[in-house]
Amino acid sequence: MARTTTRRPAAAPAAAGEVNPKAPCPCGSGRRYKHCHGSGYAPPVRRPFEGLTGEADWVALRELVPAATATLRTTDGTDVVLASVLPGGTPALVRANGQILLGLQLATSSDDISRDLGTSLAAALEAPAGAPVDPGPIGAAGSAGPRLQELLDPSAPFDVTVHEDFGFWLEGATVDPAAQAGLAHANEMVMPTVRLEGLEAAYWCRPGEERAHVRWVRPEPEEALLDALARLSAAEQLTLGEGTRYAGAFRAHGLVVPVWDVPADVPGAEWAGPSAGLQSRLEAALAVTDPLTADQRRARAGLLSRQVTLR
C-alpha cells in the first residue's frame, strides 16, 4: 500500500515590522527568534564590553588578573579608577578625598554585566565622599540602570596597572588591625601576574612554582582568529619559542583567549619579545583570505577540541 505524506502548511510570513519566529534572532545570538528574544527571555549579552576603549583588557581584568587598576573618565569629565576587585566584592566605593573606585569582579551579576557596572558607577557618582555606595541589588533581573557605554568617555585612554598585591585598596586610608588582617589574607590569594609590555591584553601568570602561562585576550572575531591560529599551527609557528606549547583557548564575554604553557623559571616580562613575534605572524595569517588547506582544517579541528567557554 502506498504511503501518503501529509505536508505541513508553510509558516505564514511575518507581518511588516515583525520577526518571523523561525528566523535567526536579530540580536546575533545564532538562535531562532522564538527561542531567543521572541520567547520573552533575554539571553546574556555576548560582548558586554563591546564599544568600550580596551575591550580585551576589560575582559582580562574581569577574568584573568587578580590585582589591577585602570583609568576611566565619564562623559562629564569625572576621573574614575577601575579595580579588578574591591574588598568583599564591593561594587564601588568613594574615598574620603572623593576618588571613585569601581569594582569589576562582582559577587553576583545579571545577563548584562555592563549594566550592572553602569548601575554601580551611577550610584557612586551620586554618593558623597567617604560614604558607602548603595547601587541596589546588583544582578537583579530587569535592572533599568545605565550601561557603561552610556557613562564613559570613549576617547579617554584605558591604561592598566598590574599590582603585586591589594595595597591600593587602602591608599590614603587610616588602617586598623582588622583591615590589615583582611588585606594580608587577600594578598595570599594573588597570583604573580605581568602585563606584557607593548601588547594589548597579553598577560603572563604563574599559578604555581612548576608552571606558568601566557594568556592573551584577542579582539578579533572568533572565526577569523581560529583560521589564523590554524594556519600558524599547521606551519608549526603557533609557539612562543623553545619549551613552550599552545595549551588551548577559552571564550570569555564574546572574545577568545588563547593560552600558552611557558617555563616557570623565566621572568614574566621576558615573554613580551616572543609574544610580539607571534603577534606579527598572527597579523600576517589574519590577512590571508585563501581557503584553509586540508592540513590547516585538521589543525583547526584540533584547536576547537581544546576550547571551552567561561561565559
Rank of each mutant, 00 (worst) to 15 (best):
S84Q: 11
L86D: 00
L86A: 06
G88D: 09
G89P: 01
G89T: 10
P91A: 04
P91Y: 05
V94W: 06
A96C: 00
Q99W: 03
Q99S: 02
L102W: 00
L104N: 08
Q105Y: 14
L106G: 00
A107P: 01
T108G: 05
D112W: 03
I113W: 00
S114H: 12
S114P: 04
R115D: 05
L117H: 01
S120C: 14
S120W: 00
S120M: 07
A122I: 02
A122W: 05
A123Q: 08
A124E: 01
A124P: 00
A124D: 03
L125D: 05
L125V: 00
L125H: 05
E126M: 09
E126Q: 11
A127N: 12
A127Y: 09
P128H: 14
G130M: 04
A131G: 13
D134T: 09
G136A: 05
I138D: 03
G142S: 11
G145L: 02
R147L: 04
Q149I: 11
E150A: 14
E150H: 12
L151I: 14
L152H: 12
D153K: 08
P154W: 09
S155Q: 13
S155P: 10
S155L: 07
P157Q: 13
P157V: 09
F158I: 13
F158H: 12
F158Y: 13
D159V: 14
V160W: 14
T161D: 15
E164A: 15
D165E: 13
D165C: 12
G172P: 02
A173W: 11
D176S: 08
P177L: 11
A179K: 15
A179C: 07
Q180M: 11
Q180F: 05
G182C: 07
G182R: 06
G182K: 10
G182Y: 00
L183M: 08
H185S: 12
H185G: 06
A186Y: 10
N187M: 11
M191R: 13
T193S: 13
L196E: 12
E197M: 08
L199W: 01
L199H: 00
E200N: 09
A202S: 04
Y203K: 09
